[in-house]
Nucleic acid binder design. Structure first.
Lengths: 248, 248
DNA sequence: CGGGTGATTGATTGTCGTCAAGCTTGGTGG
DNA sequence: CCACCAAGCTTGACGACAATCAATCACCCG
């Protein structure tokens, strides 16, 4: 079964390359824990990384492209998606600052990556990554752990799509985003992506997303100061809605 | 590029297991490949495997249990699911004869495993598995490849749930099952699971599953000789329905 | 043959999708 | 500084698809 791979294979990895002090680029939102995380381990490859910039809505790589690099998002937000022939679009995942993308998967990309906002990434050669993974058991363990976390998160999203209605999906999404951006405490969530992106991620339409947001606003669960921000006013109510898809 | 949904691999591991006349235990439906698969590598652990039997609807392990073993399904079908407090159920995956389960994930199970039919499994101690993974690069590569295939298959399921309507979901499911069981040629698909299982896997109700099957039967896309068998009469039509979730 | 389980079909409701206006916001240029 | 414009967001009216509720049917198995 072919997963409808594009034949476009131009290598975007070399584009927008700049001579940039990579060492100065520390991803935001990346908690500096003492236990080194996978992205921190990657720092060892720092000198091999190439900085690239992409502007809003620009493609970063296409489904089917050779997967020669592992990308670390320095700033901005990326969406991993599939475009269907009939116009439907599936947004599998949003990749945030500090996250990696392309760690797993085979020799070719299974998704198209597009810049949701202006984006800066560091591209590490996959060959180097594999070599390091081969020679360093601790690094390997990190990769595996990263992987199993990622797998779990994809499975969780399947659950959301399979079992939840519109408001529940939205609640799960907002809480998940709040967790990832560390906005749980401040209660203020940045929505880098537009309504259509959210809709395509949650398997709903843009209108349904709007109505669900409006409803939660009216119930004083959320505040929506502007299109790209959401303030959590009643996290308990939100968690109830999200149910098992919530971390609490 | 062709990507198989099938996380299954054919098995030779059972043949000399100590606890059971394992020569009889060759998983059915597994296409023969020459390249050694992950389950074949597992054969090296065969003396450490324990044969276990479960009857229909019996739990095999529960969500949250310590994940001390990796299970290889010798015969029968298993469902990995979550039971929600409000009664909703999410069937994440069906595990078929020859498949492994519990290879990834952390120290605890993320799903409950239940026997769909009577089931025979071999349980390998995870510690042994990890040791082998640590010492043998080839084995490790197999694990990673297995993993990335599995990840892709979960992501494909997310797509099905997020983008497809009832008949499309059913078509994707049937084709996927046909691929995995090698029934693509004969055109006859065994449905080990009941309608409710399928419904909970596809995020639909049992009535909707029934109606979708009936509709495809009336359109001469399928034949349904009995509840647990489906004959593919028009694979092209089915593939069209499944769209990008189909192998062709 | 009767009972039970699971599957199927029908009638009706409800949620979400579709279509069609408006509305906000941010950017641009006069 | 304001008018204008475009893109994206919001709201409303309506319809379609799937959920729900309720029988009825088919098939095992004792």
């Amino acid at each position: 079964m072919s997963v409808s791979f594009n034949t476009a294979c131009h290598d975007t990895a070399a584009r927008h390359s700049t001579a940039f002090p990579v060492t100065a680029l520390r991803p935001v939102n990346q908690p500096a824990t003492s236990a080194a995380s996978l992205p921190e381990h990657l720092a060892r490859l720092r000198d091999l990384g190439t900085v690239q910039r992409f502007s809003r809505n620009e493609p970063i790589f296409h489904e089917g492209d050779a997967a020669r690099h592992i990308l670390q998002i320095v700033s901005g937000t990326v969406r991993l998606c599939r475009h269907m022939p009939d116009g439907r679009r599936h947004v599998a995942e949003f990749v945030l600052a500090g996250d990696l993308c392309g760690v797993f998967g085979g020799a070719t990309q299974s998704f198209t990556a597009e810049a949701v906002t202006d984006v800066i990434v560091i591209a590490y050669p996959r060959a180097q990554f594999d070599r390091m993974s081969e020679s360093d058991p601790a690094f390997r363990a990190k990769v595996l752990s990263h992987l199993s976390t990622h797998l779990l998160s994809v499975q969780m999203h399947s659950f959301v799509l399979g079992c939840q209605n519109a408001r529940e999906r939205l609640a799960s999404f907002i809480l998940h985003l709040a967790e990832r951006t560390g906005a749980s405490r401040t209660g203020r969530v940045e929505l880098a992506m537009g309504r259509q992106d959210i809709a395509d991620h949650l398997g709903l339409t843009i209108e349904t997303i709007c109505r669900a947001i409006t409803a939660l606003k009216k119930e004083r669960v959320l505040d929506v100061p502007n299109t790209h921000q959401i303030v959590l006013r009643n996290v308990d109510a939100l968690s109830d809605l999200a149910g098992a898809a919530s971390l609490n």
